[in-house]
């Protein structure tokens, strides 16, 4: 089966990452982060998801171009 699951995983987590980081930047310093011990977890965890998604996307696209 010629289906590379890394592509949809990459797309999904990259989008999640972008949304969370963008939202985190917009809400910087907001009181909503009192919950997460005054840490802007949307930016940090969002970046991690973006990194994971981008890695998956890169692997998938590289395999495709071969």
């Amino acid at each position: 089966m010629n289906f590379d699951l890394r592509l949809p995983i990459g797309i999904l987590f990259s989008l999640f990452g972008i949304i969370l980081v963008a939202f985190g930047v917009l809400t910087k310093g907001s009181e909503i982060y009192a919950k997460s011990l005054d840490h802007n977890i949307n930016i940090s965890w969002g970046s991690l998801l973006l990194l994971f998604g981008a890695t998956m996307l890169t692997l998938a696209l590289r395999a495709r171009s071969k």
Binding site: L20, F23, I32, I41
Partner: peptide, 11 residues
């Protein structure tokens, strides 16, 4: 509900 702010909550 205790730890996660909007955004992470959705995730």
């Amino acid at each position: 509900a205790y730890y996660l702010p909007t955004g992470m909550l959705g995730l």
